[in-house]
């Protein structure tokens, strides 16, 4: 018994006291402040030029025409925003590449990328900053569709929870397209090329789950059809429009955004000067 009480040699022999480095030295630094500084500058840049006004006015006008005109809003006699949400992702497909095309291509053309990337800032901070600014800008544009929401509430009593979930889904689709567009913009110094690449890649993710594609695939490559449906941005978005917010859809959008931001960082880091 007495032996059992004796202190077992748990403690390792005392090491010579190494100078303790603060924990932050060992962790990859995750300082968000430089990213926010970049985001603020980017957002201000949208509003410093006519880009913001033109973009928002045309976006709202088109959204209005599509929802209330083409979407047969009044004839349908339903007080909801289903028509609006069914057009919105297609509007994004056009507008978001127009928003992201300048993000990096413009920096390359002006040479300011040399300035930005020689400031004490990690590439991921610059990428995140630009993405957040573009996302905030989209959020402002989408938020300005609030008169639509007021209209349906005046005309009837829609399920506002469903509308909210539709708006959340819209922001996620916008985020995914923005991440794609930003990565495409990093590839080139030519804004037109950046725009076209972004539209094409966004379209692949958008259309992957539509009937034409899956039917075509399921007759030949059923496995691919399943895969196509699972990466389809619009398919997932429809869930949100019906008012269903599912964790796996949130995870899907988050992964898509993180993946393309990562691609963006890799491109910027390896092709800074080209």
């Amino acid at each position: 018994m007495a032996a059992a009480i004796e202190a077992p040699p748990l403690a390792p022999p005392a090491k010579p006291a190494a100078p303790r480095r603060p924990l932050s030295d060992h962790l990859p630094s995750i300082d968000l402040r430089p990213a926010l500084v970049v985001a603020r500058r980017e957002l201000a840049a949208y509003f410093a030029t006519p880009v913001a006004t033109v973009f928002i006015v045309v976006f709202l006008a088109l959204a209005g025409v599509l929802t209330f005109g083409v979407g047969n809003f009044f004839a349908r006699g339903q007080a909801d925003l289903v028509a609006f949400f069914s057009f919105l992702p297609w509007l994004f497909l056009l507008f978001i590449p127009a928003l992201t095309m300048r993000l990096w291509a413009e920096e390359r053309r002006l040479g300011t990328i040399e300035l930005l990337l020689t400031l004490p800032i990690a590439p991921w901070q610059a990428v995140l900053g630009k993405f957040l600014a573009a996302w905030a800008f989209c959020a402002i544009a989408v938020a300005l569709t609030f008169p639509f929401w007021i209209t349906v509430n005046l005309l009837g009593s829609p399920e506002n929870g469903v509308i909210l979930s539709g708006y959340i889904g819209s922001l996620l689709v916008a985020g995914a397209f923005l991440a794609i567009g930003s990565a495409m913009s990093a590839l080139t110094r030519n804004q037109v090329i950046a725009f076209v690449l972004a539209v094409v890649v966004c379209f692949l993710f958008a259309a992957a789950g539509t009937g034409v594609v899956t039917e075509f695939l399921s007759s030949r490559l059923p496995l691919l059809a399943e895969a196509a449906r699972s990466v389809s941005v619009f398919e997932r978005f429809n869930g949100f429009v019906r008012g269903v917010v599912e964790l796996r859809d949130l995870v899907f959008f988050a992964s898509l955004i993180v993946f393309f931001l990562f691609v963006n960082v890799v491109i910027i880091d390896h092709r800074k000067a080209d």
Partner: peptide
């Protein structure tokens, strides 16, 4: 060439 953001 001292590149700077032109609109700022």
């Amino acid at each position: 060439g001292a590149p700077c953001y032109p609109e700022m």
